[in-house]
């Protein structure tokens, strides 16, 4: 069963189409990283999934329920931490926990206590007097302590210093098995932080989901390829293959490109295509892949507009 299923999900704000006919699933138990530049539609998508805003078209199910019918009972199973979410900042951390405790039948006071220790939060300090990172941690505690089946985090790392980020991730993922949320969806443009966590990756741009596949597969099919040798010809009449991205010639006998459909056989095929040349393929990080995809989408958008 999938934790999230979207079927042609759309959301427009006037003439601005923030989310465009998205169809994808997030399987239960996975860690799904929703990547994309600012304004890509990540927050709108997550808010639509949580019934904070209504879709303009299509539908989505969250934990088996139509997203537009999510009610109070469903939020006993869903955690949500977002940058910019209103918090009762007049409450102290302890009061916030006390306020949330009766709302969740599955609230675990031991887990709450452990998280308070891990995060090193002062229980008697009002939220408004906490730093942004500490406030996010306080919000995370109230979302983890009831062991949500689905945890949705919207830009949780933006503006946090590395130390706090580390704490945050530790709190989120380094909990023992039952304490961890079953499914996690994180939207971010901070790819480095989610790289080591993500099982699946979705790349959103202009409301469209350009890529959605397991992180390992994505990392596996993207390579930076450098071809060095005297026999490099000019551009072929039909142009480079579609899987070749960002083809460049930094020097006369050097060609660099990003291969978007790299397989173990690809290196030998390239060697055959460029006899006498040295072909070197290097694995890419999610961050590098993200940048390539973002630049490619940007170029395509400019060309489309032109």
């Amino acid at each position: 069963m999938n934790a999230i299923e979207c079927d042609n999900l759309s959301r427009s704000f006037g003439s601005v189409r923030a989310v465009r006919e998205l169809t994808f699933t997030v399987s239960t138990g996975s860690f799904f990283a929703l990547l994309g530049p600012n304004g890509a539609g990540k927050t709108t998508l997550l808010k639509t999934l949580l019934n904070l805003i209504r879709p303009s078209g299509g539908r989505a199910t969250v934990l088996g329920r139509d997203s537009t019918r999510l009610d109070a009972c469903d939020f006993r199973r869903i955690g949500y931490v977002a940058d910019g979410q209103d918090m009762p900042d007049w409450m102290t951390v302890g009061q916030l926990n006390a306020y949330c405790r009766p709302l969740y039948p599955t609230w675990d006071r031991d887990l709450e206590g452990r998280l308070m220790t891990v995060f090193d939060l002062p229980a008697d300090r009002p939220l408004r007097k906490l730093s942004r990172g500490m406030a996010m941690k306080a919000a995370l505690i109230t979302n983890l302590a009831f062991r949500p089946e689905l945890m949705i985090l919207d830009e949780p790392f933006s503006g946090l210093d590395p130390l706090v980020r580390d704490d945050f991730i530790q709190g989120l993922l380094e909990l023992p098995g039952d304490d961890r949320p079953r499914t996690v969806v994180v939207s971010s443009h901070d790819i480095d932080e989610v790289e080591r966590l993500a099982d699946d990756v979705g790349f959103l741009a202009d409301g469209r989901l350009l890529v959605h596949e397991p992180a390992d597969a994505l990392r596996g099919r993207f390579r930076t390829v450098e071809i060095v040798g005297p026999g490099l010809a000019g551009p072929s009449p039909g142009g480079p293959p579609a899987a070749w991205l960002e083809v460049g010639r930094p020097a006369e006998n050097v060609m660099r490109l990003v291969h978007g459909a790299f397989t173990p056989a690809s290196e030998a095929e390239l060697g055959a295509s460029f006899p006498g040349c040295r072909v070197t393929a290097r694995a890419m990080s999610l961050r590098e892949i993200f940048l390539v995809l973002a630049r490619r989408h940007q170029t395509a958008s400019v060309e489309e507009a032109a």
């Binding site: 805003i53 109070a72 009972c73 939020f75 006993r76 979410q85 209103d86 709302l103």
Partner: peptide, 14 residues
């Protein structure tokens, strides 16, 4: 869409 109660198990009637 930012209210705290909206993503908590608090229904509008309550």
């Amino acid at each position: 869409d930012r209210a705290f109660w909206r993503t908590r198990p608090i229904g509008a009637p309550s």
